[in-house]
Design a protein around this nucleic acid. Structure first.
Lengths: 101, 101
DNA sequence: TGCCTATATGCGCTTAAACGCATAGGCGGT
DNA sequence: ACCGCCTATGCGTTTAAGCGCATATAGGCA
């Protein structure tokens, strides 16, 4: 049930929000790339991605030695709408992420 | 800065999200009414409303012995958009709140 | 097999959130 | 002045989040 709570919790951490913003373009990224961009250690990033995955926001795929994450393509429309609004707001307010390469 | 994180944190608690949903109609409600609807104790509700206020989501007004809360009418458009999406999602998914009187 | 890179996870620690209880303060009515 | 209702807050406790460190697991390549 309380999907919204789960979603809000998932996005209430800077690293996780940052990851979501990075993945918002729909493309895949491996953990190591996310680490770089978000200035996170390996275990931290891995765990945060685990939380996002658990929340159903992202899916992962093994590709050789990498694990590539991307936005869950099967998100509920209402969830998608929230994410879209969040991404827009974060982009507008120069939030976190900032300089993305 | 990280307005979005603050917002997400504020909404990642059932009682607070419930309060926001109740106030989403723009009308005022005193703490006691919120307590009733959300099944919360007095101190809990008061504190949660404090968090929402701190986050800038609601404003309060003293009216005799009551303190009436309402959505902050001066919310940033991007924040408003997020809230709107959240309210829609929560309403759709039969989240929390449920039976509002 | 052995080694290197990439990722996940067990463990212990630290910090912050949330709660209940009790109390204080604001306001109205008697 | 006193009492009762409504709300806020200090305090101590419990619970959960997040972190780093070390280690395990998985795949590629020599």
């Amino acid at each position: 049930m309380n999907t919204v709570i789960t979603l809000m919790s998932a996005l209430s951490d800077p690293t996780r929000l940052g990851a979501l913003l990075l993945l918002a373009d729909g493309k895949e990224r491996c953990v190591c790339k996310l680490m770089e961009h978000l200035n996170a250690t390996q275990s931290r990033m891995s765990r945060h991605m685990g939380v996002l995955k658990q929340a159903g926001l992202v899916v992962d795929r093994r590709d050789a030695q990498w694990v590539r994450y991307r936005l869950n393509p099967a998100l509920a429309p209402s969830t998608k709408a929230i994410i879209k609004a969040v991404v827009a707001a974060a982009a507008a307010s120069e939030d976190i992420v900032g300089k993305v390469a």
